[in-house]
């Protein structure tokens, strides 16, 4: 406990030092406010426009969470199919890698053209960007079960569903969480990227990504910074929730509950 307190104190000290340095830079070099607002100006923007900031935050959070949850459901299902059929896996698994390498920034405008701008398009973009890590990791977890463990079940005349529920799924849990952890990080990036193109459907009020383009166009750099911080906090929040769940489900029996980014 004491050690945790100290590490929090250390982090806070670094943050204070960075803020001070930032403020000093502005004072020393007389940086104009529209180029780089001071920490105080950013803080003021947060307070004055807290309502719209919170609303943007909520919109982006909803899109990111929706896309992430949908990709977890779909990814799990696809991984189960891949685990059941080596044939299907050989045919289709390479394409999930393609899914991962697709430049989402280039594809996003297309998706918006097809599905119309708005929350749905943003969620869809998030879904696409989250899907690959979940499929790849979960499939790996499902198929990497030790042969003798399967033999153990077979010798007891276990049914396929018993092997799935009592062996493959629990065995895959750590890799599944690795996939979700990676996806949780990119989900917020996906949602904001989507909003950069598609967030303008609700006039005047969109998610963080939309508000960032808007603030930039208006040269409201202090609010832009506030939005960037909000986006960072949102990403951290998602990551933290996943790491917490991972810890909750795995820490008793699994050695490699990692808290660092892969």
């Amino acid at each position: 406990m004491k050690r945790r307190l100290r590490s929090v104190a250390n982090a806070a000290a670094v943050l204070a030092a960075l803020l001070l340095l930032w403020q000093l830079l502005i004072w020393v070099f007389h940086v104009p406010r529209f180029m780089l607002p001071s920490p105080v100006a950013v803080a003021r923007a947060v307070v004055l426009r807290f309502g719209s900031l919170a609303q943007s935050f909520a919109i982006t959070a909803a899109a990111a969470a929706g896309g992430l949850l949908a990709s977890i459901a779909a990814g799990l299902l696809i991984a189960l199919l891949f685990a059941q059929s080596p044939w299907l896996r050989r045919m289709l698994l390479p394409y999930t890698i393609l899914l991962q390498t697709v430049p989402i920034v280039a594809v996003a405008p297309l998706i918006i053209m097809w599905s119309g701008a708005g929350l749905f398009a943003v969620t869809l973009i998030t879904f696409i960007i989250c899907l690959a890590p979940i499929i790849a990791n979960t499939t790996q977890g499902l198929i990497s079960v030790d042969e003798n463990m399967v033999n153990l079940f077979l010798m007891q005349s276990a049914t396929p569903s018993q092997i799935l529920w009592k062996l493959r799924l629990p065995h895959a849990l750590p890799s599944f969480f690795t996939g979700v952890r990676i996806a949780s990080g990119v989900s917020v990036i996906g949602a904001i990227t989507g909003e950069l193109f598609a967030g303008s459907s609700a006039v005047g009020q969109g998610g963080l990504g939309y508000s960032i383009t808007y603030a930039l166009a208006q040269l409201q750099t202090d609010y832009l910074f506030a939005l960037v911080f909000a986006a960072t906090i949102l990403g951290f929040l998602f990551y933290f929730i996943v790491v917490f769940l991972e810890y909750h489900f795995l820490h008793e029996w699994h050695d490699s509950v990692r808290v660092t980014e892969p």
Binding site: D146, N148, N151, L152, F153, M155, S157, H171, W253, H254
Partner: peptide, 29 residues
């Protein structure tokens, strides 16, 4: 199969189950 048991070189315990639950596995199945 019902009257045969196999002990592998690796203990092949399910890491997510406690000792008790591991021993119970075959009875459970």
């Amino acid at each position: 199969r019902e009257i045969v048991s196999f002990i592998f070189q690796d203990p092949t315990l399910l890491p997510w189950r406690t000792v008790e639950q591991n021993v119970a596995l075959r009875l459970e199945l």
